[in-house]
Simulated assay, not measured.
Amino acid sequence: MSRPRTIDQSQILDAAEAVVARDGAARLTLDAVAIAAGISKASVIYDYKSKQALIRAVIERRVSEEQEKLRLATEKLGTGTDVHLRARINVISDNARDLPEAVAFNLLSAMAQDADLRSLMNDTYRAELEAILESSTNKRAAIVAFLALEGVRCLEVLGFVRWPDDKRAEIMRDIEGLISEKIPVRPPRDLSPVPVKN
């Protein structure tokens, strides 16, 4: 009697991303993912009971990968002022355009229709902003730099804007320069974003 085949979760999630890129999140089916992964539909259903659960797993994996990159970059930098923001700049500088546009558009579309997915992203960004603000001496400059960095990344991921590598590196240096610029330090106030209602 042969042993049951072990299914690699990343194989299923890679297949799901490929189906999302090809067909869109709205047309993603467990059948299509099973075919793309070369496994049975029952194997997909065993781990992901629904299309929504599978899309959530794809997004959670992307978030987890990003958080691990940020953790390693922060660890590499050690301690100091703006360490979390500098780590984020390094990660985004090194990992330009790592999410195909079709996948990005379709995952954003899925998030727009799912309050739980939006809540996951709200929590993720809130925690990241708290870490950035905690290690910053000039919270205003840190917020401006964070917004500039995320704006660049968003425009690139969605394919709206592309810069040649040398210009992009310059932009990243300029964003990092925002941290040390003399943006006026005003009296302490809460710069945390307000909760987003889904």
Rank of each mutant, 00 (worst) to 15 (best):
F105C: 07
D23L: 12
N90W: 02
E176G: 15
V161P: 03
K182C: 08
R162E: 14
L99D: 04
V63T: 06
D116Q: 14
D174S: 05
Q11F: 02
I92S: 02
A42I: 09
A53S: 14
M121C: 03
R153K: 04
N198S: 04
E17Q: 14
S50G: 10
I175Q: 02
N138V: 03
K41Y: 06
D23T: 09
G159W: 04
Y125D: 09
N138L: 12
R186D: 11
L30Y: 06
V161M: 13
R189Y: 01
L155S: 08
R71M: 07
A16R: 01
I171W: 13
I59A: 02
P184D: 12
I183Y: 01
A18W: 00
N138E: 11
V157Y: 03
N138S: 06
V19M: 03
S64D: 13
S135K: 02
M172Q: 08
V20K: 00
V157D: 15
Q9C: 05
V103C: 07
A21E: 10
S64I: 02
V63N: 05
F160D: 07
I12F: 11
H84M: 12
I179L: 04
L133S: 07
K182V: 05
I59L: 10
A115M: 14
N95Q: 15
A73S: 11
G80Y: 03
L72P: 06
N198M: 10
D123L: 02
S10R: 10
K49I: 04
K41C: 08
L155T: 04
A112P: 00
S50I: 11
V19R: 02
R97G: 14
V161G: 07
L28I: 04
A36G: 09
T81E: 10
L178I: 15
S10F: 05
N90I: 10
D123R: 06
V44T: 11
W163Q: 13
K167P: 00
Y46Q: 08
S180H: 01
R5Q: 15
Q52I: 12
T79Y: 11
T79Q: 15
V58S: 01
N198G: 05
K76D: 15
